[in-house]
């Protein structure tokens, strides 16, 4: 049977080991201490987020309406119709002639949005 006395360790090993192991807290730092350090910053960030949410709720709760309600309508449409929606850009009949996008606008949009060369070609030759 193998007994533990079949093994040995270098002389004074356990004394050295104790000093190495007791140095771990200094080397590693305490998680608790780290938490103590960052908790005031986290509390500050939480307060900031809370005040943002509160502010947004107050603003949403009572939007100032124009007499003809145009601002309100504008806000409603801003939410409903994303202006970046390509389908809307091409099919909208409400769009004013002066506000309609030119061919160049469409091509530069396609280039910027990383569309395929075939699609860009298609619109260039349209």
């Amino acid at each position: 049977m193998i007994k533990k006395n079949s093994y040995s360790v270098p002389e004074g090993y356990f004394d050295n080991l104790e000093s190495k192991l007791t140095a771990i807290p200094q080397m590693q730092g305490s998680k608790a201490r780290r938490w103590e350090k960052i908790s005031p910053y986290l509390a500050l960030a939480a307060c900031f987020c809370f005040s943002l949410v509160l502010g947004k709720m107050i603003i949403k709760g009572g939007p100032a309406l124009d007499e003809d309600g145009s601002t309100y309508q504008e806000m409603v449409y801003a939410d409903l119709i994303p202006y970046t929606e390509p389908l809307y850009i091409f099919t909208s009949t409400d769009a004013d002639e002066s506000e309609a996008l030119s061919q160049e606008d469409i091509i530069s949009y396609l280039i910027e949005s990383g569309a395929s060369i075939e699609l860009i070609d298609y619109h260039t030759n349209k």
Binding site: Y7, F14, L17, E18
Partner: peptide, 27 residues
């Protein structure tokens, strides 16, 4: 916490060392 850790080191270092040594064999 450090005092408690140091006490654990003092009480268990040898027992844990031998436990690990019987599992991995090499010093």
């Amino acid at each position: 916490l450090e005092l408690r850790f140091n006490q654990i080191v003092k009480d268990y270092k040898e027992r844990l060392y031998w436990h690990v040594r019987t599992l991995v064999f090499s010093h």
